[in-house]
Design a protein around this nucleic acid. Structure first.
Lengths: 219, 219
DNA sequence: TGTCAACTGTCAGTGGCTGACATTAATCTC
DNA sequence: GAGATTAATGTCAGCCACTGACAGTTGACA
């Protein structure tokens, strides 16, 4: 992840605390406005005005309009990578990935809530899935994450991701499936965390059956 | 695919021919300028000026600056979907996908050459992979294609993509792997079609081994 | 040949985003 | 605690992608 945004050590000085507060406020305002009236219909000027800062200041906190929308996602992803690093070496690669996802979701709730209501974050996730520009940004971010995770898996297994394609392939498979699950969830009605988790797990369970040669024999 | 751009029936009237020529010229100019000086450093005004039309006209042919870069890709994708439709029903899903890719590449060369030199198209592919904004657009486009292909696979196997996750999962796996291969190719030196094909096939061959539980036992 | 419809150019305007410079406010030093 | 230092912010000017409206031009077709 970007090292600049990952840290958040309780903020000691007054200046740092103030900064953190504006940042969180910008995120909250952005998510509220965008989920309410749509991403495209929301201008950066509006978001900045809602927090009572200038547009220029907004762009000092976030490099572009998209970034503010993914600020919370980034926390979750950092957590996922963290959990993955902690997985025992004996665990099979695909299993480790799966466990890391489940664990990350279990423990991230509180951290999210300190910035925005979880419910708002969930709604924002669905907004992302239904906004072409954000889908694109989301996919690119996922792709960057994939690279990082592929390197991690390669190291875990004592391989070189540049030579052995399996780490990248596995990660591509994994995150492709995660994305498919997220998309289905985003289109559905139930916007609870539980339903997202259930959907994800059931999708992961289908990887092996899906690449089997004959689906018709299996049922 | 977008129905408006897919057709290209030799253009009968003078008007239609003229339109086709401007469109092709815009694509060629765009790819040449962008590969030479970078996507971000190339303005739409420049591209339009190179073809001697107004900026407004450019935006009547392409909805945005990104789209012109993917015009050729779109031809290839349309071809792939076409080949996939022709695959015998007896073929296993993953095998059908693989065959369709290989066949599409075999026969698309000439069609590409009628718009831009194949070498320019290959260079533009690498430019895409190294330009964040275009990576994002590329991923979003792939995701749309995935949806279409998933529906196709589902129909082929007599399933409902909304109920059975296997079509989506398989397609997610497949295109994730294709993307991984494309990325590796884009970073490498050899920008030939052959090397892209070889890389793709070797990546596809690794799907099964990659999801196996124990990689260390396999070598 | 004249009429219709499609294609194009011009212009004005919006919104995302950036560099430069001045201003304010927190921190550090003595 | 006053003044020097440095970080954060506001203002302004400007670029570029993109759009709507209107007018002019040019193929198509009767």
């Amino acid at each position: 992840m970007a090292p600049s945004t990952a840290r958040k050590p309780v903020s000691c000085g007054l200046r740092a605390r103030k900064k953190q507060r504006t940042r969180d406020a910008l995120i909250r305002a952005a998510l509220e406005l965008c989920t309410a009236q749509g991403y495209d219909a929301t201008t950066v000027d509006e978001i900045a005005a809602a927090v009572d800062v200038s547009q220029r200041t907004f762009f000092r906190y976030f490099t572009n309009k998209e970034e503010v929308v993914f600020a919370v996602q980034e926390m979750v992803e950092a957590r996922f990578v963290d959990e993955l690093r902690r997985r025992p070496a004996a665990e099979a690669p695909l299993t480790a990935l799966r466990s890391a996802v489940v664990l990350a979701w279990d423990e991230i709730g509180a951290a999210i809530e300190s910035v925005v209501p979880v419910e708002l974050h969930m709604r924002s996730y669905q907004m992302i899935e239904s906004t072409p520009a954000l889908v694109a940004a989301h996919l690119r971010r996922s792709s960057d994450l994939e690279e990082e995770v592929a390197q991690l898996i390669a190291r875990r297994e004592g391989l070189d991701a540049g030579l052995d394609p399996r780490p990248r392939v596995l990660v591509a498979v994994f995150s492709g499936v995660m994305r498919a699950a997220g998309k289905v969830w985003g289109e559905g009605e139930d916007c609870s965390v539980d339903s997202l988790r259930t959907l994800t797990e059931s999708h992961l369970d289908h990887i092996r059956p899906a690449i089997d040669d004959d689906w018709r024999a299996g049922r």
